[in-house]
Design a protein around this nucleic acid. Structure first.
Lengths: 232, 232
DNA sequence: ACCTGAACACCGTTCAAGT
DNA sequence: ACCTGAACACCGTTCAAGT
């Protein structure tokens, strides 16, 4: 009678402990490779099958459907987000390290940006990261619901900073042209004089460096704000 | 010789000032409707054509390709993010209002979460929101690059908080079952004792209320942190 | 100037059939 | 237990042809 609403790879057992033929790990590894090379729209079950020297539909024995495969590769990205153990370094430093690690992992696998809004992060690696963060936040002094709130706030910041960054990267293609970018933004900002002052700033000359600065600015602000919660 | 890297609806003229047949506005409106009802994967050019009583491919006269249509509908979401003019209310209040407005607009149109990582926000409505925010941030006292940084930080927070929220909503389907959710999370958190303490908390009984609290907690923290930047 | 239909090269997924 | 191929119901996009 309790209708199963929630479906996910993580709530059903894998087919077999160890299979002789292809394996889930092999498939996931190949999928990540394909995604890194061709992006989310470049991944198809048929092409992935071909890449593994298998028939177009044989992957369906290991994976219920494409979405399940995506859950698997998504957690693979989380596996690269793991920061060093809390250790003796202060909570601000460890949290900053995770934050930077998360951003870098997403930037390395831009297709993952699309998955954040599509799949809850329930995989084992996501859980490990969450657990580490939890320890850091508790070490900082947070208690009760505020532990969850602080974690959510921090990951929200990292995701929110990184996801639109990827939109820009992919929209601009491989090569970056500062002048073209200035032209695009100038055109878009037409009619908003306040925004135009941005254009002749050096912001567009080295976007990567600026983004790092921006990320750090926001992170420091957020950490300061969280610290203030602890004082009261 | 300058290779066109950057393509977007916003950098090319629309076909015609006013056409007698179908119009871009009509198409965009129908697309938003379809997206609200069926989600991003439910929108196809063919079905949209049919909905408008047109042949499967006639939309291609108004829109270069599907991605361009998505840019258009994306900006439509931004049009719902507009907050009241700065007015005499303090910068913290106006910024909070925009933040909540942005979150609500995205929640109303969950498909937009996927677009944030795919399309730079360059449409006229996105620009208007950015312009308003810029005025608020300047009124707060920020100058130079920090104006941009503060804006980016705030929108990052809102996006990052809302995007995974949508992942949860869609994964859980229409009806929410607190016990099922607790079971799912318990299972995922197996092996992380620190995380399990979360389960018996009342967190899952009214997720909507908790999320609001969480959003406010993070927003206040962030605003406090930004305010600290101004002091130094 | 606008719309159509057929056609091309793809998709995810199911399922009976093979080994 | 694992893999295959054919088949179904879709996609986005191009383009010659119509009005």
């Amino acid at each position: 009678m309790t209708g199963k609403q929630f479906t996910s790879v993580w709530v059903r057992e894998p087919r077999k402990p160890a299979s002789p033929g292809r394996s889930r790990e092999e498939i996931v590894r190949a999928a990540v490779e394909m995604l890194d090379e061709e992006g989310l729209s470049g991944l198809s079950m048929r092409k992935l099958g071909a890449k593994l020297g298998a028939g177009a539909t044989s992957l369906y024995w290991y994976v219920a459907h494409k979405d399940e495969l995506l859950e698997l590769v998504y957690d693979e990205v989380w596996s690269e987000m793991i920061a060093p153990d809390p250790g003796r370094v202060g909570w601000r430093d460890s949290v900053s390290a995770v934050a930077h690690g998360m951003r870098q992992a997403i930037l390395r696998h831009p297709w993952s940006a699309d998955l954040i809004g599509r799949l809850p992060a329930l995989g084992p690696h996501a859980m490990l990261v969450a657990d580490r963060m939890r320890k850091m936040i508790k070490a900082a002094g947070f208690t009760g619901k505020e532990v969850d709130f602080a974690i959510s706030t921090l990951t929200a910041y990292v995701f929110g900073m990184t996801i639109p960054e990827i939109a820009w990267n992919t929209a601009m293609g491989d090569r970056y042209d500062a002048d073209e970018m200035r032209a695009v933004v100038t055109r878009a900002a037409a009619g908003h004089p306040d925004m135009l002052e941005r254009i002749d700033m050096d912001t567009y000359d080295d976007p990567r460096a600026i983004r790092e600065m921006c990320f750090d600015f926001g992170l420091v602000s957020l950490l300061d704000g969280l610290e203030r919660r602890l004082a009261t």
